[in-house]
Design a protein around this nucleic acid. Structure first.
Length: 567
RNA sequence: CGGGACGUAGCUCAGUUUGGCAGAGCACAGCGUUCGGGACGCUGGGGUCGCAGGUUCAAAUCCUGUCGUCCCGACCA
């Protein structure tokens, strides 16, 4: 591609809307432009990077025996009503009516459509297993779009669905996708980890997320330093051993704690450690108040809590509700005398003579014990901490931030039951198809790759997803020798590589800056060394500079290309 | 939806406090000089100051409303 004719509007300055590196660089490198909040246009360079990732995905999915198809983005309400998600999915599902006033939505995911397709066509166990996938634009009306392609409302996703005759087959399909995802993200040159995850609204029995390690990641992942356990913090079980309290219980006492409502304030005021305090947090589970008790230094894991309560919506109760339910301002709630279900974290079983709110503004109780109130249920409802042991081997845990680029679910029969997707087994008996679903955020993968591969000068594309492999840079196109050699090299190199040929009449500095910014892995510079018949190769990633003769150029490039492959 | 910030040229931003000619740098067009790390000089084009209403002799500036964008919290690839 000749740069002089390429639609590649790079920017010297960062548009004020961008906050994180990948977003800034994708805007500056002319890859994307925003149309509306969370809705982006992909410019040629950005689309080319996306296509690279898509092609890797395609190759690996096809290798795994999956078949590509393409499903409609506009979907009738009936299917969603049938699965129950028309009501359940919430505002994220963008709904509208057609001219006949029929309800439709934009597809945020395609379990309904694919299951409908398969139930119509699959009759026999002989038709199974089946794995179908597509790479397509999805729309989710996110509450808060963020960080460019990292969380858009419109985004490109690869979604795959497996259909098996039984649980065993479904598990095999699941683990095959697990392997496939490893291959895909490895080939994309990413530093990632597969972690155990919660299944969320998609439902199903178990699931893994593929996380690209990056500090700006919105998820926290927990690793064991001693075994291969890795999980999303939302999912990680707490398996600390709880020994009964050593102290003998004292009797509770009301104390005046004026204006002290946070854990820090109360513990500092009373001179006790946060481990001696019990936080009482009032939630609304599908609109009904529930009190949740955790130790002062622990945090509620709302995913676990929601799962335990089996509710659709879980939110912190607003201050008005807290006032009417506890009779006190926010910050003074306690379990004693509370008229609602009380869920307590297991850690409370090891506590004695602790501090709680008194349900009276500006007062707390000290020396409270479990006998002073009744707990509806004890359960593991807190976030794991670095002090907790690994739930699998008891080893030491490490925490890191990650960007979720892929998620695989073993769905089971949730959708096949709802939509009556059945087949006849070898005995002629009707059975539900067992499903799995598997997603990859394609644009997010590109953004995550940039997040992980950049420096102060710009993007450093991993070779396999670089939009071009070679940036051919004649320093001065008005120098006849340089111009002629550049033209010849462009034609020659294009036979083996994708070449971005900077034939612009710009000063060298401008070209160098743009080359670094857009992050093409190999730069070939024609300039002052051409008099001796030499050209300069610069590797973007390492900064390594190699002077080579024109005759040896292609061999040298071959070698560098091999070195730049991941693993 | 709650909290915070912002909206002036294609981009980055001054100007708003204290109402009085619409600004700078970059980018763009032309000419000249320059040419291996975002050059310099001269000239030029480019604006519904987000939008609507109000106050005023006079509004980018003050008031009311509204729309949009971004950030922090509840959702997800």
């Amino acid at each position: 591609m000749r740069y002089s004719r390429y639609f590649l509007p790079t920017l010297k300055e960062t548009p004020s809307e961008a906050e994180i590196t990948s977003h800034k660089l994708m805007l500056r490198a002319g890859m994307i432009r925003k149309l509306s909040s969370g809705i982006y246009s992909y410019l040629p360079l950005g689309l080319k990077a996306i296509r690279k990732v898509e092609n890797i995905i395609r190759e690996e999915m096809n290798r795994a025996g999956a078949q590509e198809l393409l499903l409609p983005m506009v979907q009738p309400a009936e299917l969603w009503q049938e699965s129950g998600r028309w009501e359940q999915y919430g505002k994220e599902l963008l709904r509208f009516k057609d001219r006949h006033k029929r309800d439709f939505c934009l597809g945020p995911t395609h379990e309904e459509v694919i299951t409908d397709l398969v139930r119509r066509e699959v009759r026999s166990y002989r038709d199974l297993p089946l794995n179908l996938y597509q790479i397509q634009t999805k729309f989710r009306d996110e509450i808060r779009p963020r960080f460019g392609l990292m969380r858009g409302r419109e985004f490109i996703m690869k979604d795959a669905y497996s259909f098996d005759a039984d649980e065993k087959g479904a598990e095999k399909s699941y683990w095959q996708m697990y392997e496939t995802y490893h291959r895909i993200f490895t080939r994309c040159g990413l530093n990632f980890r597969a972690v155990e995850a919660d299944t969320g609204t998609i439902g199903g029995s178990f699931s893994h997320e593929f996380m690209v390690l990056a500090d700006i990641g919105e998820d926290t992942i927990v690793f064991c330093q001693d075994c291969d356990y890795a999980a999303n913090i939302e999912k990680a079980e707490v398996k600390s051993t709880i020994s009964p309290p050593a102290e003998s219980p004292k009797s509770k006492e009301e104390v005046h704690t004026p204006g002290k409502h946070t854990v820090e304030e109360v513990t500092a005021f009373l001179g006790v450690p946060p481990q001696k305090l019990v936080k009482t947090i009032i939630y609304l589970a599908d609109g009904k108040p529930v009190a949740v008790l955790v130790r002062g230094d622990h945090e509620v894991n709302e995913v676990k809590l929601g799962r335990l309560l089996g509710c659709n919506e879980l939110e912190l109760a607003p201050p008005e509700i807290i006032r009417t339910e506890t009779g006190a301002e926010v910050g003074f709630a306690g379990p004693i005398g509370l008229d609602m279900p009380i869920i307590a974290d297991l850690a409370l079983k090891g506590m004695a003579n602790f501090v709680t709110g008194a349900n009276k503004t500006d007062y707390h109780y000290v020396n409270v014990n479990l006998d002073d109130f009744s707990v509806t249920q004890f359960a593991d409802i807190r976030l794991i901490t670095p002090d907790d042991p690994c739930p699998r081997c008891g080893g030491r845990l490490e925490f890191k931030k990650g960007i979720e680029v892929g998620h695989i679910f073993k769905l089971g029969t949730k959708y096949s039951k709802a939509l009556k997707a059945t087949y006849l087994d070898a005995q002629g008996k009707e059975r539900y198809i067992v499903m799995g679903c598997y997603g990859i955020g394609v644009g997010r993968t590109v953004a995550a790759a940039i997040e992980q591969n950049h420096d102060k000068d710009g993007i450093v594309f991993p070779y396999p997803i670089a939009p071009y492999q070679i940036y051919l840079l004649p320093v001065d196109v008005n120098n006849p020798d340089i111009a002629r050699t550049a033209e010849e090299l462009y034609v020659k190199l294009e036979q083996h590589w994708e070449v971005l040929y900077d034939d612009r009449e710009e000063r060298p500095g401008v070209k160098f800056k743009d080359a670094d910014l857009i992050g093409i892995p190999i730069r070939v510079t024609l300039g002052k060394h051409l008099k001796e018949g030499k050209v300069e190769i610069k590797v973007r990633k390492t900064g390594e500079v190699i002077l080579t003769s024109l005759a040896e150029l292609e061999d040298t490039l071959e070698k560098i290309t091999i070195d730049l492959q991941p693993n």
